[in-house]
Write a protein that binds this DNA or RNA. Sequence first.
DNA 1: CGAGAGAAATGAGCAAGCCTCATTATTAGT
DNA 2: ACTAATAATGAGGCTTGCTCATTTCTCTCG
Lengths: 230, 230
Amino acid sequence: MTVRTKTKRERVAAKEEAIVAAATDAFLQGGLRAARMAEIAKAADVAEGTLYLYFRNKEALFAAVVERHWQGLTAGAKKAVGQHDEPMDQLESLARFTLTRILDDWALFELTFAVHYGSEGGDAPDNRRDYVKEFDRVIERGIDRGQFPATVPVRNLRDLFFGCLEYSSRSMLARRRSKPDDYEATIRMVMAAIAGAAGARQPTPARAAPDRLEAAVDRLEELLAQHEPG
Amino acid sequence: MTVRTKTKRERVAAKEEAIVAAATDAFLQGGLRAARMAEIAKAADVAEGTLYLYFRNKEALFAAVVERHWQGLTAGAKKAVGQHDEPMDQLESLARFTLTRILDDWALFELTFAVHYGSEGGDAPDNRRDYVKEFDRVIERGIDRGQFPATVPVRNLRDLFFGCLEYSSRSMLARRRSKPDDYEATIRMVMAAIAGAAGARQPTPARAAPDRLEAAVDRLEELLAQHEPG
DNA sequence: CGAGAGAAATGAGCAAGCCTCATTATTAGT
DNA sequence: ACTAATAATGAGGCTTGCTCATTTCTCTCG
C-alpha cells in the first residue's frame, strides 16, 4: 500500500502503549502478584507471547508502568513550578501538586515501592530522581537570587520536603476523615519547616574529646555490621 | 514421659519462631516474589506442608516476618526514649535510634512496603502504628510538662519526624558515601524542624556523642541477648 | 505398660501461571 | 506478484504455591 495511516514505528509504539495501559489497570487491582499476564494480554488485545516481545518479563512490564506514571508526575511538577516566579511560591506550588497527586493516585504511587524486587539486574532505576530534581532546581534558583544562603543543605531540605509530604499522604489516607484541614495543615508545616531550615546556619561542633569517642564508636559499629548478618 | 523439657505450647512456639527466622532470611534475598516456600521449609527443618499449619499462605508468613521486625523496633524505641527525661532529648534519642536501625536493616525495613499486596482481607495491619505511638507519647509528655503548647499539631509533627527520617535513609543509601556527616546533618535538621514547628526551645548541643554511645551500647546488648540463647 | 484417640507433621500430586519457541501471519522491497 | 524479513500467535513446558490422604507423634486412661 502506498498510502498508510501510520508508520511501522508508530504502530509498534501504539501497541506498546496499549500493553502498558492494560497492565496499569491490572496492576492497580491487587498489585504485582495478583495481576495475570493472560488477562493483561487479553485486555491489550494481543497474544500472551506478544507481551514478551515488548517486555522481558512481568517485572519489566511492571517497571514500565511505574516509570510511565512518574514521567507524567514529573511533567506536572515542571508545570506547577513554572506557574510562579518567587522560589517560595514555586515550592508551595510543588508541595501542593505533590500532595494532591499522591493522594489522588495513591494506588499507583504505592506501586513504586514494589519495583525493586525481582529485578535481578544491578541497575537501580529510581523513578523519583527526575521528579525531586525539580525541587533542587528551585532551591538553586533561590540561591542565585540571593534569597537562600549558598550554604543551604539542599539534599537534606529535599529529604525533609518529600519525606514529609509522602509520609503525610500515607497517614492522611490511613485515617479517612477530615481531608481538607489536614491538607492545609500539612502544606503549612512543610513550608514553615523549609523556610526555617533554609535560613538556618549549621552549628559548628568544635569539640575534641567527643571526636575521640566517636571514632571509637565508628570502629564498634563497623564490627557490628560485619558480624550481624552471619 | 513424666519429665519433659518443654510444654507443647513452648515447642509449637519454638517451631513457629524457627519458621519465621528461616523465612526472614529467605525474604531478605530477593523479596517476597523470589523466596521459595520449599527452601524456607528446608531451612526451618520442617516439611513444606507444615508451613501451612502455622501460616495461611506465603503472604501471611511474609506479614509475620515484617511484624516481628517491627515489634523489635518498637521495643528498642521504647528503650531509647526511656533513657532520657527531657522531651527534646527523648525525641533526639528516638530520631537517632530510628535512623540507625533503618540504615542498618534497610533490606528488612523495605519489606514493609510490600506487605499490603495480596492480602485480600480488608484488614490493614500497619506495623508502624505502635512504633510511631512512641513519638506521640513524648509529645504528650512535653505538653503535660508545659514545654510544648497544648495546641501543637501532634499528627503533623509525627509525619514530619518519621517522613523525614525514612526519606533521608533512602537517599543516604542511594548515594553510598559520606555516611557520618549526612547522619548528623539529618538529625540536626529533623530536630530543628520539630523544635521550630512545635514552638519549643532548641535542644542543648554537645549531646550528640553520649547519645551515639548509648545507641551503640544498645545494639551491643541486643546482639548479646540474641546470641546467648541460641 | 499398652492401647488408642486425637493432634501434628509429612510429602506426593494438583492446579495455576510465567514464559518459550515452533509455527503462522503480516509487511515491505523489488 | 514474489520473497525475505519481521511480527504475532498460543499450545505446552516447567516452576511453584498449596492441598489432603496418610503417617508419625503425644498424651491420657484403663
